[in-house]
């Protein structure tokens, strides 16, 4: 019998399949489709201190084997998430969740994480540091080791929960950012966030997206995500979550061979709403067909 269980920085998961932040809301829409309890965990929509409307529309553009989004972290704010979204989700999902925290200043990150730290339901805090630092000329926190270290060091002081840092692929050397996070006390690294991309509408001869550029994701970015996981696996010793372009059980296995202890499935949920369920159901058969008895044993095996 194929064993799909994995452990993520102390958290036991029945299987490594986790819907990625921003593609699963707070679970509500998908709970109408299938029993969410089959999932390993759920990464919630990126949450900030204040409620945010996000960017102007159009926010979505299509690409070959993928999409661009510029949602701009629309969310109801951490207080509302704790008071309403978590209790609602607990009615239909009985496992620990991953809170995805965004922020535009170090103080915003620590404020939100201190609140998240007190929530029993939250098993892991995932820091989305691919946001511009408004106090620092708008430079992305994930863009340099120093700014990444600064956020992680500050957040580490306010939470004892497993802390994962989600990195941006839009950097020269992702391994040095990952190392800085590990040194600052991160319990794991999640990679990757979206790639910066754009499309131009031929009829209007203007960018499709109102904000001109946005985050590119979907099957097209799988090789980029896999490469990042492979490289970072060799650079750090904390566990990794692999995310980017996953849409089938084979992708999960490939990502784990590269070094991921668990995976997140993003854009695929939006176009194939049953994709996580399908992956979880087919995983044991696909494992059998490759002679894999336990997923834990294949983590990083490609190295």
């Amino acid at each position: 019998m194929a064993d799909t269980r994995v452990n993520l920085a102390g958290l036991d998961l029945d299987n490594p399949v986790i819907p990625a932040s921003g593609t699963f809301g707070f679970g509500h829409e998908f709970s109408e489709l299938y029993d969410l309890n089959i999932l390993g965990s759920i990464a919630l929509k990126g949450t900030t201190r204040e409620p945010r409307f996000g960017n102007p529309t159009p926010r979505i553009a299509e690409c070959t084997a993928g999409m661009i989004n510029s949602v701009g972290l629309q969310n109801p704010g951490i207080e509302h998430v704790i008071a309403h979204e978590l209790p609602e989700l607990s009615k239909v999902f009985h496992k620990k969740v991953i809170a995805n925290i965004g922020g535009f200043s170090v103080e915003e990150f620590t404020y939100c994480c201190a609140l998240a730290d007190r929530q029993e339901q939250i098993g892991i805090i995932e820091l989305n540091i691919s946001c511009p630092n408004l106090h620092c000329g708008g430079m992305n926190f994930a863009a340099a080791p120093d700014s990444a270290r600064e956020v992680v060091t500050a957040v580490r002081k306010v939470t004892t929960k497993p802390l994962f840092v989600k990195l941006s692929p839009n950097v020269t050397d992702i391994t040095e950012i990952a190392r800085a996070c590990e040194n600052a006390g991160a319990d794991g690294i999640c990679l990757i966030n979206t790639l910066l991309g754009m499309r131009i509408d031929l009829r209007r001869q203007k960018p499709v997206i109102a904000n001109k550029m946005g985050g590119f994701s979907g099957p097209a970015i799988f090789p980029v995500a896999l490469r990042a996981v492979y490289q970072v696996y060799e650079a750090v010793s904390v566990p990794l979550i692999g995310v980017g372009g996953i849409s089938g059980a084979e992708d999960v296995i490939e990502m784990m061979l590269a070094g991921a202890s668990a995976v997140e499935v993003g854009a695929a949920n939006l176009v194939q709403p049953y994709v996580c369920k399908d992956i979880i159901e087919s995983l044991p058969h696909v494992m059998d067909s490759y002679g894999i008895g336990s997923l834990r044993e294949i983590i990083g095996k490609a190295h």
Binding site: T23, G25, E29, T57, R59, M67, Q74, A267, N269
Partner: peptide, 22 residues
Amino acid sequence: EERMGCGFGACMGCSCKTLTGS
């Protein structure tokens, strides 16, 4: 009409502001 990522409420790709909220 709006450009949509999912069409069923999961991605916040199609939000608009109204007098009764987003």
